[in-house]
Design a protein around this nucleic acid. Structure first.
Lengths: 140, 140
DNA sequence: GTATGTGCAAACTTTTTGCACTTCG
DNA sequence: CGAAGTGCAAAAAGTTTGCACATAC
């Protein structure tokens, strides 16, 4: 999921965010790394080409991106944050034996869930979004 | 979901864990607090009656409980861990406006999911468990 | 030019660790 | 008694913050 500089610029511009080299690099890193990187993964990746980008900046930029819905935080039960650049609706496969998280996209599943929650209204709760955590192991 | 001292002892004994006052207090706290407490919530609760229990001990005991499947870690996109004492299969309602997480139990939903994954085999992945993250807002 | 973003280093928060001491069984 | 658990305080790990400087528009 490698994006061109132009596409990345447009993504930022659409959200009314200033286009800075740091933001472009960080967004590019997330799309290139693409397997739900941690802040550290992103920093490491960027430092190979741009060693002068600051840790604090990366965290600030990531927060900005989350607020502007360019990326999402991924829920985990580990003590560090992971980020997700896939904007399309999707679910996650969590590996029990490693830190791998893979995306799972399927319209049929989404329709089944939509149907279920249309029929079974949760009283006192307005649903915004439903995603599955599918825990298991990848075949060796 | 308040449990008797006897029940708590049995839970520990069944897992072959030594019964200590600290472990009993921590397990009791989780069941009493019951809304997916953080380590801090648990420490605070326990300190009211037993001010001499150490923070490090609480973390060590929580890890032991997770390893022995007495409790589970709850996946969140926040930077602190939350714990769940409900052993029955269930899903989670995450509030977008607060840190509230509520349980959602429904057999019909579980059957629908079981059906779906029986029909749609994920190649290269052995499913152990599927849980829903239902994000939204509670009515005021 | 000015509002916004960045670098840096210090601080903060949450969790982990090592080791002497204590306790459960 | 011996293995396992606890307290404590120090440190690690991850993230946030404040402020002077730099840059996008």
């Amino acid at each position: 999921m490698k994006l061109s500089k132009e596409t990345i610029k447009n993504l930022l511009a659409e959200k009314g965010l200033r286009i800075t080299p740091q933001r472009m690099n960080i967004l590019e890193a997330i799309y290139t790394l693409n397997n739900h990187p941690t802040a550290e993964n992103i920093i490491e990746f960027i430092h190979e080409m741009h060693p002068n980008i600051a840790t604090g900046t990366v965290y600030k930029v990531l927060e900005t991106f989350v607020e502007n819905k360019l990326i999402k935080k991924v829920k985990t039960d580990r003590d560090f944050m992971r980020y997700d650049g896939l904007l399309e609706k999707h679910h996650h496969l969590y590996c029990s034996e490693s830190d791998t998280i893979k995306d799972y996209v399927d319209d049929e599943l989404d329709n089944i869930l939509k149907d279920y929650f249309r029929k079974n209204h949760l009283s006192g709760f307005q649903i915004e979004d439903v995603t599955l955590q599918i825990r298991g192991t990848f075949d060796k």
